[in-house]
Simulated scan of single mutants.
Amino acid sequence: MISLLASTSLSLTLAAQAVTQESFTQEWTQKGLSPEYIELALSKANHNPKVIEAITTPWEAKPWYQYKQLFLTEERVQDGVAFWKKHQQTLARAEKEYGVEAQMIVAIIGIETRYGQFTGTYPVLDALYTLGFSYPKRAKFFASELGHYLMLAQEEGWELTDVKGSYAGAMGWGQFISSSYRAYAVDFDGDGKRNLLNNPVDAIGSVANYFKNAKWQHGLTPAYPLVQSPEVTAALKWNGKPITATVAQLKQAGVAAIGDDTMSSAILTLDSSESEKQGFQVTNNFYSITRYNRSPLYAMAAFEFSQLLNDAFKP
């Protein structure tokens, strides 16, 4: 049972995190939107309780051995190979211009939307409205994304209620959130539009551009499986932040680490079964993948999927 004091503290915390429509309007008016446009947008938005339900039960809450079964399938690999062959020249150009391997770009788009087959059914306006004003845990973030969505709709000439995406408001083949769409989407086919909603060429270039900005290093392996799951100090474990430990430090701790002694590396341990764990040596490129999705399960799935694609692809 929560004490009265704890309950009061929790209520105050949630209240502090809450975003009001008045404060939202004031902030985004200062950032360039007209009050009339904001009022119109909010009047068109609907609260959707299914959005709250979805965000509180994410797939990333599952253990690794269950999570990876969603993506590391033969059918998805074959879809990826077909996509790679169809867009081989575009992917090669993206790799050359942005320094991101084709198989990683293909893996991301495959995991996100199965190559455009499943881009989401939630109206983005409703999803961001619901999370921005009714999900105090991350209200500030989603209210910001709502503001960016209103900006984006104006910039791209969208009807606010037409665009659909994930329960978290991610859109298009690569599932970009609004701020990422505005910052990293590129017109990769040169038609004068940045269209990630139904243009795979722009999606390819934009995913590559995102990874370039996340400091992806061409040729650097994101993770190496370890024969044994080592017991190391917290300083050598990956904590979701930029990696500060080195291969030399891992070796000093008794880890059979791979790479030059100065290479940044840390240890990540995932559940490989109900009773066993698998250790990995992760590098800066693993961290780069988590800039796309913070979950280490997602990052590992994307990397392993990219390996399967690379093995299966025959030019």
Rank of each mutant, 00 (worst) to 15 (best):
W238A: 04
K251R: 15
I105H: 03
A234P: 00
F280R: 03
D79V: 06
P58K: 11
V81E: 02
G219A: 05
A223T: 02
R114F: 13
R93F: 02
A139S: 15
A245P: 03
K212H: 14
E74T: 11
K277L: 03
A302R: 08
A107V: 09
Q17H: 01
N293R: 10
K68Q: 15
F303A: 07
D311E: 15
P49W: 13
Y167W: 14
Y210M: 02
V51M: 13
P225F: 05
T20M: 07
T283E: 08
G80I: 06
R114P: 00
A143H: 03
T13E: 13
T56H: 08
W238I: 07
G110T: 07
T57P: 00
A203L: 04
Q69V: 01
V51Y: 14
Q78L: 12
K140C: 00
L220R: 15
N198V: 01
A235Y: 10
A302D: 08
G99T: 11
P136A: 12
E27G: 00
Q69D: 15
K237M: 14
Y37C: 06
L250R: 11
T233M: 11
M300A: 04
L10I: 10
G190D: 01
S144Q: 09
L5S: 12
L33T: 06
G110K: 04
Y122S: 00
L146S: 01
G174Q: 10
L14M: 12
W238R: 03
G110M: 04
A185R: 11
N239S: 14
A312N: 11
K212D: 08
M171Y: 01
H47N: 10
A299K: 04
V201H: 07
P58H: 06
G157S: 05
I2F: 12
E155N: 14
K237W: 09
F141H: 08
M151D: 05
F118K: 03
Y67I: 00
Q89W: 06
Y224L: 04
R76W: 04
G259T: 07
S295R: 05
V19Q: 14
K44S: 11
Q307R: 15
G205Q: 03
A214G: 05
A223M: 06
Q17T: 00
A139Q: 09
I109N: 02
V247H: 14
T56G: 00
V77D: 02
Q249W: 11
S3H: 07
L72P: 00
G279H: 07
E101Y: 13
T244D: 10
R294L: 09
Q228S: 10
L197A: 07
L236Q: 06
F176I: 05
P315E: 06
W173C: 03
K140E: 13
V232N: 03
V19I: 10
E60W: 00
S7I: 11
Q89V: 06
V163H: 11
L268A: 05
N293E: 07
D311M: 14
L72C: 04
Y184D: 02
Q117F: 13
A248G: 12
V106M: 01
V124S: 08
M151Y: 04
T246I: 05
Y224R: 09
K44A: 09
G192A: 06
Q278Y: 01
N48H: 13
N48D: 15
S229M: 07
N239E: 14
L236Y: 13
F305G: 01
A139V: 01
A61C: 00
E95Q: 15
V201L: 02
R76Y: 04
V207S: 10
Y287L: 11
Q30W: 02
L270S: 01
N284Q: 15
A41G: 06
G99D: 11
D271Q: 01
G116C: 05
I105A: 07
V282N: 01
